[in-house]
Computed example of a mutant assay.
Amino acid sequence: MKFSSQIKPISYLKANAAQVVDGLAESGEPLVITQNGEAKAVIQDVKSYEQTQETLALLKILALGNRQVEEGRVHSAKDALASLRKKHSG
């Protein structure tokens, strides 16, 4: 993805909001908004935002799992299944 084609000043957003929203939904790419020549905001369509949030959640779960492995807080599958069976049978 090339951000250079997706950079617009805030004045462009103000003047073309409906067109910008349609373009976001169509392309799925984020748009960087500048103010006084500096990047100030990024806007994206809802579907892309939701996908990003789901990806971040999965990455957090993976990082937590890796940390638990590094700390030695793991159990064998056999022990985990036995523990689950015990909880659900009692």
Rank of each mutant, 00 (worst) to 15 (best):
E38L: 13
R85H: 02
D79V: 06
D45F: 06
Q53C: 02
E70Q: 14
V69W: 07
E71L: 15
A63I: 01
Q6W: 10
A57L: 11
G65I: 13
A18H: 02
S76K: 12
Q53K: 11
S76F: 06
L13Q: 03
L81W: 02
V20L: 07
V32T: 10
S48E: 07
I33P: 05
K60N: 09
V32C: 09
S83T: 11
N16W: 05
A82W: 03
L59W: 02
A57H: 10
Q68L: 15
L58D: 09
K8V: 10
P30D: 03
D22Y: 05
A39P: 06
E26K: 14
Y49K: 05
N36K: 11
V69S: 08
L59S: 04
I33C: 07
Q35S: 13
Q51K: 14
K60Q: 11
G23F: 08
K78C: 04
A41S: 10
E38K: 15
G65A: 15
V46G: 03
K60S: 05
L56T: 01
A80P: 01
Q6T: 06
L24K: 05
Q68C: 08
V21M: 07
K78V: 11
G28W: 00
E71Y: 09
D22L: 10
N36F: 06
K47Q: 12
P9W: 08
A77Y: 13
E54S: 08
L59T: 01
T55S: 05
H75E: 10
S11K: 12
L62C: 06
T34Y: 04
E26N: 02
P9S: 06
A80N: 02
L13Y: 14
S76E: 09
E54N: 10
E38V: 14
D22H: 09
A18D: 13
L24W: 05
Q51R: 14
T55C: 00
A39Q: 06
T55G: 00
Q6R: 15
V42S: 01
E54P: 00
Y49G: 00
V42W: 00
E54L: 13
D79L: 12
A77L: 15
T34W: 03
G37N: 03
A39C: 02
L59H: 02
A63Y: 03
E54M: 11
L56R: 04
L84M: 12
A63K: 11
L56W: 01
P30N: 02
G37W: 03
K8M: 07
G37V: 03
G23Y: 08
G65T: 12
V21K: 02
L64Q: 10
R67F: 08
Y12S: 09
A17E: 14
V21E: 11
Q6C: 12
A77S: 13
L13E: 07
K60M: 04
L64W: 01
L13V: 15
G65K: 15
E29L: 12
E26S: 07
K8Y: 09
Q68T: 02
V32A: 06
Y49P: 00
V42D: 00
I7A: 04
E29K: 13
I33E: 08
I61T: 13
L24I: 07
